[in-house]
């Protein structure tokens, strides 16, 4: 049963990365969109693209936490004790990001919009970096078993963590750009080209980071590296092929196919991480089965997952379909947009 819960956990990470990650990535493009005049149109697209969905996407993170602490409580204690600093930064960053995004939409004065926008954008980069660094710390075996604290600094400032952080930011930006190309076609067609160029650049960036990553992992996270180059190798290859395919489609301006391939590329590398780490939750010190909570708890978690399939997934699909059809246009906060935005 612990295997089933582990699979659920991994799936939750994948879904969070693919949906929530892209919302963070949109913040990256918000950050780099330039001054208020130059950046207005891309920011508009970004706001309309993630506005209705980011909160729902964000809940996947809470799901990950809940599964972790109910099903693998001892590992959760180890992780939070060891990775106290990046987790705290991520938590504060999430507050700053969510609140600023909501505030920015609710005010009209340009000065405040800029301040909230800056807070939103900076924290959108900070949070995925921390998440990636946390993943790196876990994957490179720096979190000890037994509810013990590992090294409070080196556990997240180390080659694998830096790789994880940078890769998370880049992959999030990449996914976001690919989605934004698609969304921009509906909202502001000229912006599609704007984001397409950025998507191509981000794809190249992620590719380069991935290549560098091979060497980093070979030297710093041998268990993970061995896994990735053996049983998880098909997934790595799948990811690379899809990434290349998406790049080709982006260059040839076929955003719909590019979106699908980009999602598979990111998802398969995360699944690859899970497969490479198997059977360890904390590599080489704690396996999933050893960390697992009693059967009753696991059963309860699986029941919740089934209920989520029955209740949440249809709602989630409904939200996305309505959003994609343009039926959730705006909150309509701007009462006098043209005048006051000035």
């Amino acid at each position: 049963m612990s295997t089933a819960v582990a699979v659920v956990l991994l799936l939750a990470v994948v879904v969070y990365a693919v949906f929530g990650g892209a919302d963070f990535g949109a913040g990256f493009w918000d950050l780099t969109a330039g001054g208020p005049q130059r950046g207005e149109r891309p920011r508009d697209v970004i706001e309309h693209s993630i506005g209705p969905v980011w909160e729902a996407n964000h809940v996947w993170l809470i799901f990950i936490f809940v599964i972790l602490w109910t099903s693998f409580p001892e590992a959760y204690a180890s992780i939070t004790l060891t990775l106290f600093v990046p987790l705290t930064i991520a938590a504060l960053g999430i507050v700053l990001r969510g609140a600023s995004f909501a505030f920015r939409k609710a005010v009209v004065d340009m000065r405040y919009r800029r301040a909230f926008g800056a807070a939103f954008a900076v924290s959108s980069v900070l949070v995925p970096y921390c998440m990636g660094a946390i993943a790196g710390g876990i994957a490179s075996g720096r979190v000890p078993a037994g509810g013990q604290a590992g090294d409070p600094v080196q556990s997240w400032i180390n080659p694998t963590s830096v790789l994880g952080g940078v890769l998370a930011v880049a992959a999030a930006a990449y996914l976001a750009a690919v989605y934004l190309v698609w969304d921009a076609r509906r909202l502001d067609a000229e912006m599609a080209e704007y984001f397409r160029r950025r998507a191509v650049a981000a794809a190249a960036g992620v590719g380069v980071i991935g290549l560098v990553g091979i060497f980093v992992l070979a030297g710093d996270a041998s268990y993970l590296f061995d896994g990735l180059t053996s049983r998880a190798l098909p997934l790595v290859i799948l990811s690379a092929l899809c990434g290349l395919g998406a790049l080709v489609l982006l260059v040839r301006n076929a955003p719909r196919g590019a979106r699908l391939l980009a999602v598979i590329a990111v998802a398969s590398v995360i699944v690859g991480w899970g497969v490479a780490q198997w059977p360890y939750l904390l590599p080489e010190s704690l396996t999933f089965s050893a960390a697992a909570a009693p059967g009753g708890t696991q059963a309860a978690v699986l029941v919740v997952v089934l209920l989520a399939g029955a209740i949440v997934v249809p709602g989630f699909v409904l939200l996305f379909v309505l959003h994609q059809k343009g039926l959730l246009p705006e909150e309509g906060v701007e009462d006098r947009p043209a005048v006051e935005r000035g």
Partner: peptide, 14 residues
């Protein structure tokens, strides 16, 4: 829950 009370979560999280 984890950052401040890891021993609580480690022991009773399930």
């Amino acid at each position: 829950f984890g950052l401040l009370w890891p021993r609580f979560m480690g022991q009773w999280g399930e």
